[in-house]
Amino acid sequence: MTEILTPSNLDEAEDAIRQSATGGHSLQPCGNRTRIHRHDPDAAPSRWLSLSSLDSILDIQPGDHTCTVQPGVSAAKLDDAMAPHGLELGILSPGGEDGTLGGLFLAPDLSLLRRRHGPPRDQVLGGKWILSDGTRVSTGSKVVKSVAGYDVTRLFLGSRGRLATCVELTLRLRQRPRELRAFRLGDPSTPAGLALGKARVSVFVRDSASTNDPIQGWALFEGAPPPGFEGQEVDLDEARRGLGSALGAFSSSSVRMHLPPGSDLPEHCPWTAWDPLGGQLALATFPDSPPSGCHILPVRESSPWLAPLAEACAPGAPPFGGEAP
């Protein structure tokens, strides 16, 4: 059974990292480990470093649409804190309830609000980190626009914890929609036309990847849908359950495929959930040959740059996420 260290403050986190470095242990930072099996199926560190107890919302600046949080905060907890200000984090991703924001941002993941607000990483303005030798650093800024220094934040965000342990994130917030209306959609082969493009979010799901399974779809609009939209208005809760099942499908599938926006669904594709606006599909298996223009995540081979970057982050120290000795 691999040991899990759960520091309750920054000093403890730093101590744990320093001790592991001097003892030659490899640590792998994590949150509640709700998604790591998907993003990093081969992870086998000698110890996990869970940041789940660093779970304070440190600062909210509603007038500036920013907030600063510790990585153990869940998306649901942040959402509760944002709602009274009429704000939200511009993402809708799997694991909102149990997963931590650190986990969500450190591995590239999907957001059903991707077309509107970009991928999850676009919501992060900066952060504080501990490198694998115990050095504390900061990246980015607390304002929505900054080009001072390198964009190390983005480099760290996609690294699945291999380059740095996240101990603080400053996030950009978005306006919460004032009025939402929900619709059930027909078969995706007769899409609700261009009008669907105006939706805030839309998903199709089916129970299994079998192409015979019935497909269900929902869309949410901020206000009335545009003329020409065909769909049956339903209770918001019903659509929310639909979104939840799509997020569940994305969460349980190990492969995600990106289609260029606007493309048709590839034929014979074993999908379980489809976000037509963001061009994202949850797949049951790795396709033998992805259709041209499509892109599969997670990539099977990690970047050859990862090792030299990890060495540059903490020269001489064992990198995060290395093999158990």
């Binding site: 590239p108 991928p119 990483r121 080009v147 390198y150 964009d151 190390v152 983005r154 480099l155 965000l157 996609g158 690294s159 699945r160 990106h258 260029p260 061009g279 223009g293 499509c294 892109h295 995540l297 997670p298 990539v299 990690s302 970047s303 740059w305 990862l306 970057l309």
Partner: peptide, 22 residues
């Protein structure tokens, strides 16, 4: 980077704004 703009390691993001030094 990729056609979808997403990648595991965001080297694209590190290049943007690097003032021609990367």
């Amino acid at each position: 980077g990729t056609a979808s703009g997403e990648d595991d390691l965001d080297l694209r993001g590190f290049l943007v704004g690097s003032e021609g030094t990367v």
